[in-house]
């Protein structure tokens, strides 16, 4: 597959809104993600950041506005009233995105390699021998080729999430969406997943990441987007955003985060005292 380099954004959201019943969870979201850009979505729980990310894969059917994946409208036929596109067309439009979930969502009855090769064989119709080669190469990339024949339940959470990343990468996506990829992990397993994600970013993958890992956002993101109550309240480079003081809600959010981690500082100070 060839990627034509144009100036059109990899991902573009225009006026996206979403309601659950009478509850408006997303308001008029405008967002552009350029090719090779890493965007981190942060915000308090219930701010709509996961819903926003899921809208980018049409796992949530957004009600208003438009989502474009590499210039193609996602999920809806152009024009009103809204009519879903055919499933085949939806799958075609989103074939360039890969999704990684908080709960990994591996298929427990298939081996690790089986998880990675399933879509290659059933969707891309690649012969099983070649799919196996590609699957192993992807597992190599996340450092788990030696676990190819294991079953998901035999792996740690961090390993399972890395398999899930390999599964998405096997389809050669141009854009990777991560929905709180480390939130279900024991703290000591978070690092290995973030490490893989950092590598991906360094390789130039376009990424949108919903995360509570402020360290990751500060280090890897090109753009950090802060959501609150379904609206984008602030956005910018991490350096800029993490020092924005004019946004009380953002400051409060970041302060909570700093408070949670403050005891480290206290302990360090105690140790040096």
């Amino acid at each position: 597959m060839t990627v034509t380099k144009t100036h059109r954004p990899a991902l573009a959201l225009r006026g996206v809104g979403k309601r659950f019943g009478s509850n408006q969870v997303l308001h008029n979201i405008d967002l552009e993600v350029q090719s090779s850009e890493v965007v981190c979505l942060i915000g308090p729980s219930g701010s709509g950041k996961s819903t926003l990310l899921r809208s980018m894969a049409f796992l949530e059917e957004y009600d208003d506005g438009e989502v474009f994946i590499e210039g193609q409208l996602l999920g809806w036929e152009p024009g009103l009233p809204r009519k879903r596109t055919s499933r085949a067309h939806l799958n075609k439009v989103r074939s360039t995105i890969g999704m990684v979930f908080q709960q990994f969502n591996l298929w427990p009855h298939m081996s690790v390699l089986g998880n990675v090769t399933e879509a290659l064989i059933r969707v891309r119709r690649i012969a099983s021998g070649e799919a196996r080669q590609r699957g192993l190469a992807m597992l190599e990339k996340v450092g788990l080729a030696h676990k190819a024949d294991a079953y998901p339940a035999q792996l740690s959470g961090g390993q399972q999430q890395r398999v899930a990343i390999a599964r998405a990468l096997a389809m050669e996506p141009h854009i990777m969406l991560f929905d709180e990829p480390t939130s279900a992990l024991d703290p000591e397993l978070v690092g290995e997943v973030l490490h893989v994600m950092k590598q991906l970013a360094a390789d130039g993958m376009t990424m949108v990441v919903v995360t509570h890992e402020m360290g990751f956002a500060a280090q890897v993101a090109d753009t950090v987007v802060f959501l609150d109550q379904g609206q984008i309240v602030a956005r910018g480079s991490p350096q800029k955003l993490f020092h924005m003081t004019q946004h009380p809600r953002l400051q409060q959010f970041l302060q909570n985060y700093l408070d949670r981690n403050a005891f480290w500082q206290d302990m360090k100070e105690e140790a040096t005292a």
């Binding site: 979930f101 298929w107 969707v123 998405a168």
Partner: peptide, 30 residues
């Protein structure tokens, strides 16, 4: 069968029928 497993399949372009045969039935028969 947890909905997330089906969403993962969905995102990879796996059809609903393939989902039934390859993902849901083998697990639920157990």
């Amino acid at each position: 069968i947890p909905k997330g497993q089906l969403e993962a399949a969905d995102c990879l372009g796996i059809t609903r029928l393939q989902c039934i045969w390859r993902i849901q039935l083998p697990q639920m028969l157990v």
